[in-house]
């Protein structure tokens, strides 16, 4: 899940070297659109997981992609070519704006997210694997693989990589930079929407400000993997997710026995960010940074 959100950061950064702080809010938005679709389908013959979930994912990814493109069009495109700091500030502004707009529209309370796929497929003592867990991992891997294939093997993917490396030369090859950047936001936002719904399914509640922490952690994952590098984002996402659950679990167990550590789960994530930035700022797959998208 971090991997999916991290992809959104890294895609955009890879192409236009902008850290899209509003990406976390894009994820929240995607979750709420998904919730709306599920709520609309509830009680109809389509409410079964096999029909309701695909509908929620497709609609939410499409609508959220639209939001991403709009955001780029109005908040970032006018600042392209301006100082990078300007675009960064605009991204922060967009993030705060979207978060507050959602608060006004939806309210400050957590909204329950309907449970799907909660039957266990494997149960051995304390260990319970639900259908949902497999679905989450499976969908994440599938989307990451599709994106990788798209960027590596298609004409538009090539155009994205060419724009990442030299915008002017890409233009001279007939590549429209604006169209390419828009497509980048479409892909990043659609991935974010999928992550938002998965997040809702997993935790069972969503809130207008959930994207903030999720976004910052995913950003950590992207940096961990080497920002601008797609495969790095996926690796960083999985590494972060696993260490966030594993490190507190280890520290709570016998040799250390500090159960309070679970309250500091987030500190683990950001500790990792600080450590990566100090030790290897280019990230795990950082050598390949210029490969970008």
């Amino acid at each position: 899940m971090y991997a999916l959100v991290a992809l959104g950061y890294t895609l955009v950064y890879g192409i236009i070297e902008l850290i899209n702080f509003a990406h976390g809010e894009i994820v929240t938005f995607g979750a709420f659109v998904g919730l709306a679709v599920l709520a609309a389908l509830a009680g109809t013959p389509l409410s079964a997981a096999a029909t309701a979930l695909p509908a929620a994912f497709l609609v939410s990814m499409a609508v959220t992609a639209l939001l991403g493109v709009t955001l780029e069009r109005f908040a970032y495109r006018p600042l392209r070519g301006a100082d990078r700091l300007m675009a960064l500030i605009s991204a922060l502004g967009a993030s705060i704006f979207l978060m507050n707009a959602m608060m006004l529209a939806i309210g400050r309370d957590s909204k329950p997210f309907p449970a799907y796929l909660s039957e266990p497929v494997l149960q051995r003592g304390d260990l319970v694997v639900r259908q949902l867990d497999l679905f989450l991992i499976g969908l994440t891997i599938l989307l990451c693989a599709l994106l990788d294939l798209f960027v590596r093997r298609t004409r538009i993917g090539r155009a994205m990589r060419s724009v990442a490396q030299d915008q002017e030369a890409a233009r001279m090859c007939g590549v429209s930079v604006n169209a390419t950047v828009s497509i980048t936001f479409v892909l990043g936002s659609a991935m974010g929407a999928a992550a938002g719904i998965l997040n809702g399914l997993y935790y069972g509640v969503i809130r207008f400000d959930m994207g903030f922490l999720l976004g910052i952690k995913a950003f950590t994952a992207a940096v961990l993997g080497g920002i601008g590098n797609l495969r790095g984002a996926v690796v960083g996402g999985f590494v972060l997710g696993i260490s966030e659950s594993l490190i507190p679990a280890i520290l709570a167990a016998p040799p250390f026995s500090v159960p309070e550590i679970f309250d500091y789960k987030d500190a683990v994530a950001f500790g990792i960010l600080i450590l990566v930035l100090m030790v290897k700022p280019s990230g795990i797959l950082g050598e390949e940074v210029p490969e970008k998208a």
């Binding site: 030299d166 030369a169 090859c173 590549v175 970008k292």
Partner: peptide, 18 residues
């Protein structure tokens, strides 16, 4: 000004983009 991180053939394919 080539796309230095891409393959030779990919550079030509970007040239055909349009």
């Amino acid at each position: 000004r080539l796309f230095n991180e891409m393959l030779v053939i990919e550079n030509l394919l970007v040239g055909m983009h349009a």
